[in-house]
């Protein structure tokens, strides 16, 4: 390659880097305090040291199912939703390990959907590269905000909630979109067991061991999801929970009396629950946490004033859509 062409190539790459950097600023979401829409583990790192009482971890079934603000309002427990959409258990483990360097939660709630997402070690490398790229050029992370460009980037006007990016409160992604699940009953009992593959199993065990080592109560839970959940998966998780002496809350089973209304409480036809569903799940989980008597009510504690302030914002946001 001629020297001129080398120079051209270099100039092009530098130009592109600058352009991506500038564009990234344009695409950052308006609610920057929430640390983005997904891959938002950054949010937990901003919490002051040892202030989080419980964590919820897992994939999008976790992100959408537990709203820490609901639990704060009722019980005063400080929690953070660290779920990341499509996350593999391997990444969940490393995320937890990192978070535990700064926080000492008493309880970790692990959503079980990711137990059935098999992965290879190359995925870990892909995740690292993706994370780094998103940190350097946030446009990769926030590019989907182009659809809101008109509303909040240029004119900065207040549009309807549905037209804005979903805001995030303590890791919970607020979403009131509703698309009914039409598939009928899905909880028919079976003895079949859907095996947890080797690699997810290995990291499930590692998460369990890590929690044991740190004196944290690990609780497995399955968020209501007719599209993702099956009884065979329930049986596999139950076996693991029994073997490791863990609590397992399956919110799909009728016995748990969650009364999810599949006409209104799901945002995408039964894959994930929306805010209305999360409100019910959070109430259930809050009550369960309260029963454990491991967490402290911080609502009157002046050191946690910021939680009350964030709750006010959450309340304003949800007021309009509350049933």
């Amino acid at each position: 390659m001629h020297a001129g062409n080398k120079l051209k190539t270099l100039s092009f790459i530098i130009g592109l880097t600058i352009l991506l950097y500038i564009m990234s600023f344009l695409f950052l979401p308006a609610n920057t305090g929430a640390e983005g829409l997904y891959k938002k583990a950054g949010g937990i790192y901003k919490e002051p040291k040892n202030t989080i009482g419980y964590l919820s971890i897992g994939d999008s079934e976790s992100t959408t199912s537990i709203s820490p603000m609901e639990i704060w309002n009722t019980y005063g427990y400080t929690g953070f939703n660290c779920g990341v959409p499509a996350q593999k258990l391997q990444d969940t483990y490393y995320l937890l390990e990192k978070v535990l360097n700064k926080q000492s939660p008493k309880v970790v709630l692990l959503e079980t959907n990711a137990c059935f997402r098999d992965f290879k070690y190359i995925n870990a490398l892909e995740t690292i590269i993706d994370d780094k790229t998103e940190k350097i050029f946030p446009i990769y992370q926030y590019h989907n905000n182009w659809r809101y460009f008109h509303f909040y980037m240029l004119k900065n006007i207040s549009a309807d909630v549905a037209e804005k990016p979903s805001p995030v409160y303590k890791g919970y992604q607020y979403n009131i979109n509703s698309k009914p699940y039409m598939g009928g009953p899905y909880t028919e009992e079976t003895d079949e067991v859907e095996e947890i593959q080797d690699q997810p199993y290995q990291y499930l065990t590692k998460i369990s061991d890590l929690c044991k080592e740190k004196g944290i109560r690990l609780v497995l839970y399955s968020s209501p999801s007719p599209k993702c959940w099956t009884y065979a998966k329930h049986n596999a998780v139950k076996q693991f929970a029994d073997k490791n002496d863990l609590d397992y809350i399956d919110l799909n089973l009728p016995s748990d009396q969650l009364s999810i209304d599949w006409n209104t409480d799901t945002r995408d036809g039964g894959d994930h629950i929306n805010y209305y569903g999360a409100k019910k799940v959070s109430a259930y989980i809050g009550s369960y946490l309260s029963g454990l008597s491991l967490l402290t009510d911080h609502r009157q504690d002046p050191r946690f004033e910021s939680w009350n302030n964030e709750f006010k914002a959450y309340e304003t946001q949800t007021m309009k859509s509350s049933k």
């Binding site: 592109l16 352009l19 991506l20 564009m23 695409f27 829409l37 997904y38 959409p85 446009i139 990769y140 992370q141 590019h143 989907n144 182009w146």
Partner: peptide
């Protein structure tokens, strides 16, 4: 390049 990065259907959603 920007069109592909911005309009690409990847990531959240």
């Amino acid at each position: 390049i920007l069109l592909v990065i911005v309009l690409g259907a990847y990531g959240d959603g």
